[in-house]
Amino acid sequence: MNDFHQLKGGDLFALTVFLSAATHRSFRAAAVELDVTPSAISHSIKKLEERIGVRLFNRTTRSVSLTDAGQRLATKLRPAIASVAEAMQEVEGFQGAPRGTVRINASDVAIRMILRPILAQFLRDHPQVHLDIVTDGRLGDIVAEGFDAGIRLAEAVPQDMIAVRLTETARFAAVASPTYFAARGWPQAPQDLYRHNCIRFRFESGAIYRWEFERHGVVETINVNGLLTLTDQILMVEAAIDGVGIAFVPDFLVSAPLREGSLERVLDDWCPAFPGVCLYYPGHRHVSAGLRALIDAIHKFEFER
């Protein structure tokens, strides 16, 4: 008996729509990703449910959630749709110029440090490539969420991924304005930070970052106190320049203020280098020509700089 379920016209698009809505748990977010209207998403899913005779989403006025059947379909679809996308990418690889969409998931810091310097030139060099870059501090699952690659600190890259080193090392810097230090004094050791107003960083998970220092094998982890907590490291730098307190951020974010004298650095010998930033992608997935061109552009920029 032939158990092959034949796809009819529009089914593949409808399944793509369903998977996007299932991933985002939002028809509106799926509409943004697929560049269609929310009503088109709703209509496509309704037609799919009628076609197969099963409700896939529970809908309320505020949210949508998967039914058990929807969850099972999404689980089965993800590798299948990924295989179709991979097959298309392999065929596209026979063309002379990279083309198509490259979806990247990265933290705000990684985007500013790695991607921003090369974006304009890369898009001029590869006009048929569309970069879809999502700022995300959650360290999400790039496979489940439909990304081609992610960019993270080397220590945060999942072990089952192929990692491409983009920077050899990275460092953090503890900085504040000269007026702040003149009024409050300069910390000489990490423990002195408990007597200072520190600008804290909150991850998207809600956790507060604990400042990590190391010197001569001695490790100090400080759960700092302060009057200001932010989720944006650029705002942390600006608050430090304004004299709010001490910020602890990647040092490349403060290179210009340090040169200009609007910030001063402390505890420098307590801020060692650690493994740098990597771009990573699933080992089983074909690397598209567009993603390969982006990796080459990043490496070329790092080499020339």
Rank of each mutant, 00 (worst) to 15 (best):
N223Q: 07
K76H: 14
E212L: 14
A80N: 11
I45N: 00
K47M: 04
S26F: 04
M236C: 12
R200H: 03
D35Y: 07
Q121H: 12
A31S: 03
P272W: 03
N225E: 01
M1R: 06
A85L: 12
E214Q: 12
R78T: 15
E302S: 07
L235G: 11
G217W: 03
K76P: 04
W211F: 05
P98F: 13
H196T: 09
P275V: 10
F252I: 03
L115Q: 01
D108A: 14
Y281D: 07
S42R: 08
I151T: 02
E50P: 06
E155L: 13
E90P: 00
T75R: 10
A289V: 13
A14S: 03
S44Q: 02
W186P: 08
A163H: 01
G185F: 06
D296A: 14
S26Q: 02
V91M: 07
N223W: 04
L12W: 00
P158R: 14
P117G: 08
I234D: 15
N225R: 05
I111L: 03
G276L: 10
A110W: 00
V249A: 04
V32G: 01
R55Y: 10
F252V: 05
L291D: 02
Y209F: 13
A154S: 12
A240G: 02
R259W: 07
F201V: 03
D35T: 06
G96H: 11
M1I: 10
P190T: 02
L227E: 08
I104H: 00
V109E: 04
S39E: 09
A69G: 12
A144Q: 13
A174F: 03
G217R: 01
E92K: 11
P282M: 14
T169S: 14
H196K: 15
L267R: 09
A106C: 00
L263Y: 05
A80S: 13
N197A: 10
I151S: 02
A97L: 12
E304V: 12
I133S: 01
S20M: 00
A144I: 12
E212Y: 13
L263F: 08
D108L: 08
A120K: 14
L12N: 00
N225W: 01
K46N: 08
V237C: 06
A106E: 05
D35K: 01
I104Q: 00
L230T: 09
I104G: 03
G226S: 05
M161N: 09
V134N: 09
A256L: 09
K76R: 15
V244D: 05
F274G: 06
F203C: 11
N223E: 09
E214F: 06
R51T: 11
P127Q: 02
D268T: 08
R200G: 04
T60L: 04
H286Y: 10
V254D: 06
R55T: 15
P257V: 01
F201G: 03
F147W: 01
A273Q: 13
E264N: 05
L73C: 09
F181Y: 15
M236H: 04
T60S: 14
